[in-house]
Design a protein around this nucleic acid. Structure first.
Length: 563
RNA sequence: CGGAGUGUAGCGCAGCCUGGUUAGCGCACCUGGUUUGGGACCAGGGGGUCGGAGGUUCGAAUCCUCUCACUCCGACCA
C-alpha cells in the first residue's frame, strides 16, 4: 500500500481524554476514531489489525473443528425472558422496540440465540458434538465505558458455544479449547496466563480466563512463584494461613470494650493476634430485586472477597449496609458478631472448628471472648477470604503474588445452565430427551487490539507483533521529490510485495524526520530507509522493537526480513 | 447513580470572572517559492450557527434558567 493512497491521520497532539497508552497511541497513529462514549470507528490501519487478529482466531478454531456462523445482532427480548437474563443483565442490555412495538435487545453475548439455533436444527445425539462460533459485534451499555477499545460499549467479540451429549465430552472440548486458545494467543505474540476464574453473570461451573499481562490491566491475578498455579483474585484460593504460635486461651465471657470497634483496636485491647479476632461484615444482598441483610464472617487478618461473597449467597448484587439499616436489624456497627445474630450468616472456611476467638456481642461496647464456631452448621462455611500477597500456594505451597492482567479470553463449562430453561434437548441412545451439555468460549477481539499495544509500546508509539501488524515492512523514502530515490523506493516495494510481504511505502513528499516519526508511531515491525546510501545500493533496516538500525545491500533485503 | 469537570475551526487551547468593533492562538489544511537524514522556512489563503433551547439586555461566546453530549474519580462491569 502506498501511503499516498491510504487514510492514516496521525497527530502530534496527545488526545486530551486518553489515559491508557493503547488508547493514546491508537488515536494518535490513526488506527481508531472516537464516535461516542464507548464507540469507535476503525480506520484502515485499525481494520487491518483487527482482521489479522480475527484471521488467527478463525484459522485455529477451524483447525480445531469449530464451525463459523453469524447470528443476528438484534435479538428478540422474549428469548432473554425465557433464560431469565432479561432482568439479571439489567440496564446493560440496550433495549428498543420496532415499529410494531416488538421488544428487542442488542446482543451483548449470544447464548440464547445459539441455543435456539441448535434447538431448531439438532435432534439426535448422532449430530453431536458440535462447536459453533461467530466473530461479531456486541453491544453492552456499560455504566462507564473507558480506556478506548479496552472497555467500549460496542466491540468485536468471538463467541463460541459447544453442544454435547454428556459431560465427559463437554470436558474434553473444554480442554481442547484451552489448548486452541493458547495457540491463538501465542501466535499473536502475547505474554499471557491462563487463570482460574469466577464465572460472572454468564453462569456455569469451571471457568478459565486468558489474561494478557500488562500493568494497566483491570484484573488482579494471583500467581505462584514456584508452580503453574494462576487465578483471578476473584476466584483464587490459598492454603490456610498458619496459626500464630501463641494460641489464644480464654473462658467464654462477655467483656466491656467501650470505643473498641476495629479489628486493630480489639486486637490491641486483648493483646491477641488479629487471627483470633472475628470480622463480621454486613452487606445488603440483592436477588431478583429483593434485598436482604447478610453477614459475612472472617478472621481479622483476612479481607472479604466480594465476588466470592456474592456467589456464596447467590445474589445479583452486594451493597454496603448503612448504619441505619444495621440499627433497624438490631445490629450495632463495630460490635456485630456471628452469635445469635438473627440474619443470614456465611462464615469463611478458615473459621470452621475454631474453638476460641473474639467476636462482637451484638451489644454496644461489648465483645465476647472464648467464642466457638463448633455449633454452626457445616453448610454455612464457604470460601470468602481474598488471597493476599505472601499467602501460600494451594498446589505447591510456594509464595503467591499479584500481577495485573487484561482479560482477553474466557472459557466456561455451562453444562445445562441455558439448555434446560430454553428446553433445548436432543434424543439420546435410549430415545430419551436430554438437555445439551454446553461449553462457551469467548475472545475479546477488539480488546486484543488494545492489549497488544498495552504490552508492546514505547514513548514513541506502537510496536505491533508480527501476527498483528497492519504491515510487516514500512519503507521510508527519505526524499520522495528526488526521482531517483522515489524510483528505488518503488523497486524495493515491488520486490517485497512480490515475495508476499505486506508493505507500506511512504511516498509522501514530506521530510525525512516527519516520515520517521510516523513510522515509529504506527509501529510496523520493520522500517526500511531508502535514503542517501540507496544510490550506491545501500538501504537501512530499522527494527521497531529496539530501534536498532543496520545498513545492508539492497538485494539482501529479503534475507533480513527472514524470507 | 453519587462526586468533579469540559463543550469556542479537523485537533489542542485562549477569550467568559468584569457583556461592547470584524472571536483569537498553535498544529493540521490549500496556493506559490525555498529546503530535503529526525516533526523545515517565507509569503499568501480557506475554514466558526462559540453544544442546543429559552431568558435578561440597546447589545451575549461572556450573565441567568433549562437541556444535551463528552471526559475523569467512585460504585459496576468482557
Amino acid at each position: 500500500m502506498r501511503y499516498s493512497h491510504i487514510l492514516i491521520p496521525t497527530t502530534k497532539e496527545i488526545p486530551k481524554d486518553a489515559v491508557l497508552p493503547s488508547h493514546k497511541m491508537l488515536l494518535r497513529a490513526g488506527f481508531i476514531q472516537h464516535v461516542s462514549s464507548g464507540i469507535y470507528n476503525l480506520l484502515p490501519l485499525g481494520k487491518m489489525v483487527q482482521d489479522n487478529i480475527r484471521n488467527v482466531i478463525k484459522e485455529e478454531l477451524d483447525k480445531a473443528g469449530c464451525n463459523e456462523v453469524q447470528l443476528g445482532f438484534v435479538t428478540p427480548a422474549s428469548l432473554w425472558e425465557k433464560s431469565g437474563r432479561l432482568n439479571k443483565y439489567g440496564r446493560e442490555l440496550l433495549r428498543f422496540e420496532d415499529r410494531k412495538d416488538n421488544e428487542f435487545v442488542l446482543g451483548p453475548t449470544h447464548e440464547e440465540m445459539m441455543v435456539n439455533l441448535v434447538k431448531q436444527s439438532v435432534r439426535s445425539y448422532k449430530q453431536l458434538p458440535i462447536n459453533l462460533y461467530q466473530i461479531n459485534t456486541k453491544f453492552r451499555d456499560e455504566i462507564r465505558p473507558r480506556f478506548g477499545l479496552m472497555r467500549g460499549r460496542e466491540f468485536l467479540m468471538k463467541d463460541g458455544y459447544s453442544f454435547h451429549a454428556n459431560r465427559e465430552d463437554m470436558n474434553r472440548e473444554f480442554d481442547l479449547m484451552e489448548q486452541t486458545y493458547k495457540k491463538i494467543f501465542t501466535r499473536l505474540g502475547l505474554d499471557f496466563r491462563v487463570v482460574e476464574a469466577d464465572s460472572g453473570a454468564i453462569g456455569g461451573s469451571g471457568s478459565k480466563e486468558f489474561m494478557v499481562l500488562a500493568d494497566s490491566g483491570e484484573d488482579t491475578i494471583v500467581t505462584c512463584d514456584k508452580c503453574e498455579y494462576a487465578a483471578n483474585v476473584e476466584a483464587a484460593t490459598a492454603k490456610p494461613k498458619p496459626r500464630p504460635r501463641e494460641e489464644m486461651e480464654a473462658e467464654f465471657a462477655k467483656f466491656k470494650t467501650p470505643g473498641v470497634t476495629t479489628i486493630e483496636e480489639v486486637s490491641e485491647f486483648f493483646k491477641v493476634d488479629p487471627y483470633f479476632v472475628v470480622k463480621t461484615v454486613v452487606k445488603k444482598a440483592i436477588t431478583d430485586g429483593e434485598s436482604r441483610l447478610v453477614a459475612f464472617v472472617l478472621r481479622g487478618c483476612d479481607t472479604l472477597q466480594e465476588v466470592k461473597a456474592l456467589n456464596a449467597v447467590d445474589a445479583d448484587d452486594l451493597i454496603d449496609a448503612s448504619e441505619q439499616e444495621l440499627a433497624d436489624a438490631g445490629l450495632v456497627a463495630g460490635y456485630v458478631g456471628p452469635l445469635e445474630l438473627g440474619i443470614e450468616t456465611v462464615i469463611d472456611n478458615s473459621l470452621e472448628g475454631e474453638k476460641c476467638c473474639i467476636v462482637g456481642a451484638n451489644e454496644t461496647d461489648y465483645h465476647l471472648v472464648g467464642a466457638s464456631f463448633e455449633s454452626f452448621d457445616k453448610a454455612q462455611f464457604k470460601d470468602l477470604s481474598e488471597v493476599q500477597e505472601g499467602d501460600s500456594c494451594p498446589c505447591c505451597g510456594g509464595t503467591l503474588g499479584y500481577t495485573k492482567g487484561i482479560e482477553a479470553g474466557h472459557i466456561f463449562k455451562l453444562q445445562d445452565r441455558y439448555s434446560k430453561p430454553l428446553e433445548a434437548t436432543f434424543l439420546d441412545e435410549n430415545g430419551k430427551a436430554k438437555p445439551f451439555e454446553m461449553g462457551t468460549y469467548g475472545i475479546g477481539v477488539s480488546r486484543l487490539i488494545a492489549a497488544v499495544i498495552e504490552q508492546n509500546h514505547d514513548e514513541k508509539g506502537c510496536k505491533w507483533t508480527k501476527a498483528s501488524a497492519p504491515f510487516e515492512a514500512h519503507i521510508i523514502v527519505a526524499n520522495s521529490k528526488d526521482d531517483q530515490l522515489a524510483k528505488l523506493g518503488d523497486e524495493v516495494y515491488d520486490k517485497l510485495r512480490e515475495n508476499g510481504i505486506e508493505t507500506l511505502l511512504d511516498d509522501r513528499k514530506d521530510r525525512f524526520g516527519a516520515k520517521m516519526k510516523d513510522f515509529e508511531l504506527i509501529g510496523c515491525p520493520y522500517g526500511i530507509i531508502v535514503g542517501k546510501g540507496a544510490l550506491e545500493g545501500k538501504i537501512e533496516v530499522v527494527n521497531r522493537d529496539n530501534l536498532d538500525k543496520i545498513e545492508i545491500d539492497m538485494h539482501e533485503i529479503l534475507n533480513h526480513l527472514g524470507v
